[in-house]
Amino acid sequence: MNPTHATVTIDIILDRQNTKEVLRAILHAILFHRSFGTIKPKTFEVLDVTMPGVADPEIERLVDEKVGAFWKGMESGAYKRGQITITLSGKQQKKAWLGITSYEEEVPWEQWIINAEIRQPKSEQERVTFNENLAATLTKSLRTMLTHTSSEQGRAAVPSITNNQVSPFPLKIVVKVGDVEVG
């Protein structure tokens, strides 16, 4: 993997009640900010925080599949921590065998790492505080996305766009629960 690609990390503490909804919103928001074709936007309201998303059947299916894999991994094991990694790559021509032949190689240009931990509030007062903290973390995550994607570094990382697809770059989402890849 290319060590020079940008890496953005989001740490979040969730409860069982909000896990799917929050992860779906975060993944959609990242993909919204890294979609370059014509998209139909949608929004997610999570704990009074409005998150952007992409109304594209393929992206919605991918996000639902990965959130479902994360949830199943959490449900089936003793682990309460997991990670979802989104890697965006560009295609680059590489020379092979004495420069006579060439092939395309996927080279990562940006990676988003979502570290998630599930905790359960024990009382109603803890739930109120927990939800307030989760809403603040969501707002901070959205701010991180906006800051990175609009920064000079965030804009410079994007390779040349050669088509008008919603996601013109190879996209890979990996889900790990307890350091084991799931889904």
Rank of each mutant, 00 (worst) to 15 (best):
T9K: 08
I84F: 03
V175W: 00
T137R: 04
I10Q: 14
R61A: 15
V166Q: 09
R34T: 03
Q111T: 05
V46N: 02
I173P: 07
I113N: 00
L138H: 05
V22K: 12
T137I: 00
L27N: 08
R155K: 12
G183E: 07
L134M: 06
I30Q: 08
V107K: 04
I12L: 06
Q83C: 12
L27D: 04
M51V: 05
E60D: 15
Q92K: 15
E75G: 05
S141D: 10
E104R: 09
K91Q: 10
E106N: 02
T9A: 07
V174C: 03
V180C: 07
G90I: 06
R81M: 09
A135C: 04
Q17Y: 10
F130T: 04
H5C: 05
T101L: 12
Q153F: 00
L14A: 01
W112I: 11
E105A: 10
K66S: 05
T50C: 11
E104K: 12
P121R: 07
L47A: 15
V107D: 03
Q92A: 15
T4F: 13
R61E: 14
T101F: 13
W71V: 05
K66R: 13
K91W: 01
I12T: 11
E58P: 09
G73D: 03
T43L: 11
I100K: 13
E21K: 11
H28W: 01
A136T: 03
I12W: 04
P3S: 10
L88M: 10
T4M: 13
S102I: 10
G178A: 01
Q111C: 00
I39Q: 06
G99A: 08
P57Q: 15
G99S: 10
Q17M: 09
R34A: 01
T139I: 02
N2H: 10
F130L: 01
S151R: 01
S160I: 12
A25T: 00
P57N: 15
S151Q: 03
K122M: 11
I39L: 08
A96C: 14
N115R: 06
G73H: 03
M74Y: 05
A156K: 01
F44N: 09
I10P: 07
L98Y: 14
G37M: 08
K122G: 13
I13A: 04
N163H: 11
L88S: 06
L146I: 14
A136P: 00
I30D: 08
G73M: 02
K95Y: 14
F130S: 02
G90N: 14
W112Q: 13
K172N: 12
G90L: 07
Y103I: 02
I118G: 00
R16P: 05
K91T: 06
S150V: 11
P108F: 06
I10C: 12
I26N: 00
Y79P: 02
N164Y: 12
N164V: 13
T101Y: 11
S35H: 11
D64A: 15
I39H: 04
M51P: 03
K94M: 14
G53E: 08
V128Y: 03
E58S: 15
Q17P: 04
A96Y: 14
I173G: 08
T137G: 05
T9H: 03
P52D: 13
T19D: 02
P159A: 12
K42H: 07
I10V: 15
I86W: 00
E124C: 01
